[in-house]
Amino acid sequence: MLINKNLIEMNLTSKTRDEVIQALAKLAYQEGRVSDIEKYVQAVLKRENEYSTSVGFGVAIPHGKTNAVKEPFLGFARVKEVDWAAPDKNPIDLVFIIGVPEEQSGNEHLKILAKISRKLMKEDFRSSLRNADTKESILNIIQDAVK
C-alpha cells in the first residue's frame, strides 16, 4: 500500500514548512519507506525551491524523487496554518507528501498519485479530509478516492 495509518498525522504541530517536511519524512523513515531522511528532505526542498508546491485551496503536495526512497509512499498531515511560500501568500492546512524512488519499476503507484492529484481539485474531498475525526476515516477517504 502506498499509504497506511502510520503515514497519517491528524494534527501536526510543526510551524514551518521545513519542520513539516522533516516530521513527515521521519514517519516515512520509521515505516521503512525512506533509507536516508536527510537526503530525501533535501530532494523535497530542492523541488520546493523551484517553486512552491502549494497548489491553492490550503493544500500543499511536497514531493521528492530520489534513490533515498526505498518504496513509494504517500503521507498525509493536517497542520495549523503553515506558510508554504505560496504565490497567493495563503497558508496551508493540508499536506500530502509523496516519495518515489529514482528508478522504479511499474507505474501502478504513479497512477494512484495521479488519481489523488485529480481528487485534490474537488472541494468535497478536501472538506471531508478537514472534517474527519480519526486516522481510519482519513485512510478510508483517501483509499476511496483512488479506487
Partner: peptide, 17 residues
C-alpha cells in the same frame, strides 16, 4: 510538470472541470 507526479493531473482535472 517537471516531476510528472501531481501538478500534471491537478491541472488536467481543473481544466476538464
Amino acid at each position: 510538470c517537471t516531476t510528472g507526479i501531481a501538478h500534471t493531473y491537478m491541472a488536467a482535472e481543473a481544466i476538464e472541470e
